[in-house]
């Protein structure tokens, strides 16, 4: 995951905020995600995931700050739209158009659209070309939307909840198709999901969003390498918790289980304590339960507000 040359940024946000009426859907978002990653944007429903993705596509105008994509292109600009592919939630295709007509439409709306590649993929997927998009299954529709986005030959692909309406099999097929495309073209992918399982397998950069704020944004490997579950005598737990940022604090009569973020890459647990690795899913859940913690790449200190439970 170490960058050989200085990579451009796939997604860049500074002071980004969006307010609907009097409530902030998204606030103070600072992001600098490098290119060439599969970025998972996770968070519960209503966390602001769709708002962030719509801001990145220029579908929504920010209330505060700015967002740039694919090496500093202004979100929603013509340059950005021609190099960033987007698959909206539930695909958002025209239900009354046939698959062939939908491909034709996308061809007319994009320069450099690869029609033959789109037709090839549709044939591989066994989706009937003459069928209306509205009559396809959810999985087929998602695949058609992915096909269109990929045929545009984007450098960055943004997908809003691509898996939410798919059954497990369709989900697997969709992710397999997406990963194959990533491997083939070396594009960056930013996808949102409220499903936290399987994150480790399919993503290498993680952004955790909760309550409209970024809770965590870092390379998956770094996240895994810096979070530990410390197990030790409950009597010393308060002393440990005072030194290290604690994400989750569980105690029995004898033992304390502290989920901590270590400051260095090598975790040296205090004497008499045992450190074990934590799975990504468990970590994400811990961050989601802890609404006022913010960790972003390059800024390792936790904001102090939420550290004491």
């Amino acid at each position: 995951m170490t960058a050989i040359t200085e990579p451009g940024l796939a997604l860049q946000a500074s002071g980004l905020g969006k307010r609907y009426g009097s409530t902030w859907a998204l606030r103070d978002v600072e992001l600098a995600v490098p290119e060439g990653r599969v970025i998972a944007l996770v968070g519960p429903n209503g966390a602001g995931k769709t708002t962030l993705l719509h801001l990145a596509m220029g579908l929504t105008v920010p209330t505060a700050g700015e967002v740039r994509v694919q090496g500093g292109l202004a979100a929603g600009s013509l340059a950005a739209l021609s190099t960033v592919g987007f698959v909206a939630q539930d695909a958002a295709l025209y239900p009354n158009l046939s698959v062939a007509d939908t491909i034709h439409l996308a061809h007319n709306l994009n320069t450099g659209f690869d029609v033959s590649r789109a037709h090839e993929r549709i044939a591989e997927l066994d989706v009937p070309l003459g069928c209306k998009v509205g009559k396809l299954s959810g999985g087929q529709r998602a695949q058609v939307a992915l096909t269109l986005a990929l045929a545009k030959r984007p450098r960055l692909l943004i997908l809003d909840e691509p898996l939410s309406s798919l059954d497990p099999l369709a989900r697997h097929d969709f992710m397999a198709a997406l990963m194959a495309a990533v491997a083939e073209d070396g594009i960056s992918v930013l996808y949102s999901s409220h499903v936290v399982s399987e994150l480790e397998r399919v993503s290498d950069y993680l952004v955790v969003l909760s309550g409209g704020r970024v809770q965590l944004a870092d390379e998956v490997d770094d996240v895994l390498g810096t979070h530990w579950l410390y197990t030790g005598p409950v009597a010393e737990a308060d002393r440990i918790a005072a030194d290290l940022p604690v994400l989750r604090d569980r105690r029995t009569d004898v033992l304390a289980y502290l989920l901590v973020r270590s400051t260095g890459p090598q975790a040296q647990p205090p004497h008499g304590w045992e450190a074990t690795r934590v799975g990504l899913e468990e970590l994400v859940l811990a961050y989601l339960r802890k609404p006022r913690t913010t960790v972003t790449h390059g800024a390792l200190e936790l904001t102090a507000k939420g550290t004491a439970l």
Binding site: L59, F86, A88, Q89, D90, A92, P95, L109, G112
Partner: peptide
């Protein structure tokens, strides 16, 4: 209303040309 603007407005041509 149907949300298809998310497709139409995010194509390379841009929403104004569309």
């Amino acid at each position: 209303e149907s949300g298809t603007y998310r497709f139409a407005f995010t194509q390379g041509a841009g929403r104004v040309r569309w």
